[in-house]
Every structure is written in structure tokens, then in C-alpha cells.
Computed example of a mutant assay.
Amino acid sequence: MTLYVGLDVSQKETEICVIDGDGRRTWRGKCSSEPECIAMVLREHAPDAVRVGMETGPLAIWLWHGLRALDVPIDCIHARHVAAALSLQVNKTDVNDAFGIAQVVRSGWYRPVAIKSLQSCRIRALLSARSELVAIRTTLYNQIRGLLKTFGVVLAAGKGGTFERAVLTRCPADPLIRSAIDALLEAWRVAGERRQRLDSQLLRLARSHEACQRMITIPGVGAITALTFTTAIDDPNRFSRSTDVGAFLGLTPRRYQSGEVDISGRISKSGDRMARSLLFEAPN
């Protein structure tokens, strides 16, 4: 019997629905959202499943790699495509969602999402952490300047050591104000130190990566931009044409065409936000 499976994944439990080639439900149930648990249930209730589908989500990468390692023919479907397919359902429940995903898998009317390698995900974790530290440091910098303006202290433009010396020199002697500024300044300093450590680690990774070494030779492209781009692309073989990369990163214009109307709009911004932002800054 030809079987198809839909998985509606949540943080604790996963709703599983098994259907046959005619779309009739043959089994449904729940299990823990662990690759080993899901694979065990599928071996019992759908040992010869042709395809198993789940939508993108926070656990998708971990589950996909775990299930693939256990020889489960799992496909990941974009959550927007699943939402469009399930929008006609009167009642939204985990049971109905799993059944709907199984029907989408059976129809084959979807394009599986390319899941990044674990190595790319590991590097992306460092890049994301660095990005957050940069944002935190910028927020603290603005908070300190804004707080001092309340008491008539307007700092001149400056960053790094220049900014820190200016804050310490011109901060009012009031102990309450000094206490608040010192707390923010210490957090700003620690965030900068942590970011520098990540910068050093990312620089070493870029130097050991052949594609990154080539990208760094391009004017305006550094280690961070090169690593962000290569991890966003991950496997270049999945692109049939080089021009597809721009569309993948959301750098190509949207288009609306109907009858005599043909409008080219702004860039779609549908791809990787971090990669798109850094590629835009690189030539400037």
C-alpha cells in the first residue's frame, strides 16, 4: 500500500497523520518531537511511506537532519505554502493540519525547502550572535548618550575608547547618575569584548574556507560578508543558473503581470535578510 505522512510539529509533541494513495486516513496519533520517537512510530504505522512532510519551523532543521539520518524520506515544505493549502479548512487543529500536510505531500504540489548543512548552521549561529551583540552595543551607546543629555551633557561624536573616555570624564558627579551610567557602560564594554572574540573566530573560519578566501579579494567584502553569503547559499549546486541566486536572496524586483498590466516593483526582500543587508553595504 502506498502511504504518505504529514507531521504537524510543536515544541513538545508532533501530530502524525498517515494516508493512503486515495487520500484516506489510515492512522493518526502523537509522539514526542524527537527524531528517534517519530522514526519509531513511522516504522510501526507507515514502514513503506513514500514521502513524509512537515512545514518549516524552529525545529525543522534539527528534525530534518535527524530523520534523514534514520532513513526517513522527509521533505520540508515552506510554512507559507502549507498555510495557503490549509486556508480552506473550517477548523484549524493539529489533527486537521497534519491531515492537510499529508494531502499536500500526496499531491506533490510543492517544492521541498533546501535545508542547510549542520556546518553552515553552526557558522550562522556565530554570525547571528555577533549581529545581536552589535545591536546591543549600539542600543547601549545611544542609551548612554541620551541619558547624559537629560542632565545637560552632550557628547561629541566618537566611538570605542574615545566614547568611553568622554563618558567617564563628563559624567555628572551625582552618585545615582554615575551608578546608572557605569552599569550601562560596563554592559557596553563587555558586549564589545565578546563581539571581538567572535570576530576573531569568524576570521579564522573565513581563512580556512576556500570560497570565502576568494570572496575576500573583492573590494568591500570582508570575512563577515563572505561567511554570511556562503552559509546562505550553502550548496551552490542546487542553483541551476547563477542568476537564480539574486532571486533567492530577495534582490530581484517583484513583478505583477495580468493582461495589459505589467508592473515591476521594488526588490522582493524574500530571502536571507542578513546576507542581503551585507551585500548591499559592501559596495558602499
Rank of each mutant, 00 (worst) to 15 (best):
T2Y: 01
V5I: 00
V5R: 04
V5D: 00
L7H: 05
S10G: 10
K12D: 15
I16A: 13
C17P: 05
V18G: 07
V18K: 12
R24K: 13
W27M: 06
C31M: 08
E36Q: 09
I38C: 02
M40W: 08
A46Q: 03
D48E: 14
V50M: 09
V52R: 07
E55Q: 09
G57C: 10
G66A: 03
G66E: 04
L67W: 13
L67M: 14
L67A: 03
A69H: 06
A69N: 08
P73S: 05
P73D: 09
D75H: 13
C76K: 02
I77H: 11
H78M: 05
R80K: 10
A84D: 14
L86G: 01
L88A: 12
N91H: 11
N91Y: 07
V95T: 15
G100Y: 05
V104C: 11
W109G: 02
W109S: 04
W109Y: 05
R111Y: 02
P112Q: 06
A114I: 06
L127A: 09
R130V: 12
S131P: 01
I136N: 06
T138C: 01
N142G: 08
Q143K: 07
I144H: 04
L147F: 14
T150H: 11
F151C: 01
V154R: 03
V154K: 06
A157E: 14
G160F: 11
T162C: 06
T162L: 11
A166V: 06
P172I: 07
P175Y: 01
L176K: 02
A180F: 11
R197C: 04
S200R: 10
S200V: 00
R204C: 14
R204N: 13
E210D: 07
E210G: 00
E210V: 09
A211E: 10
A211R: 10
T217Y: 04
P219E: 05
G220K: 03
V221F: 07
G222H: 02
T230I: 00
I233K: 11
D234G: 08
T243G: 07
V245K: 01
G246N: 05
T252A: 08
T252S: 09
P253C: 03
P253I: 04
P253N: 07
R254Q: 06
G259R: 07
G265A: 08
R266H: 14
R266K: 12
S268K: 13
S268F: 12
S270G: 11
S270H: 09
G271H: 12
R273S: 07
R276G: 14
E281M: 15
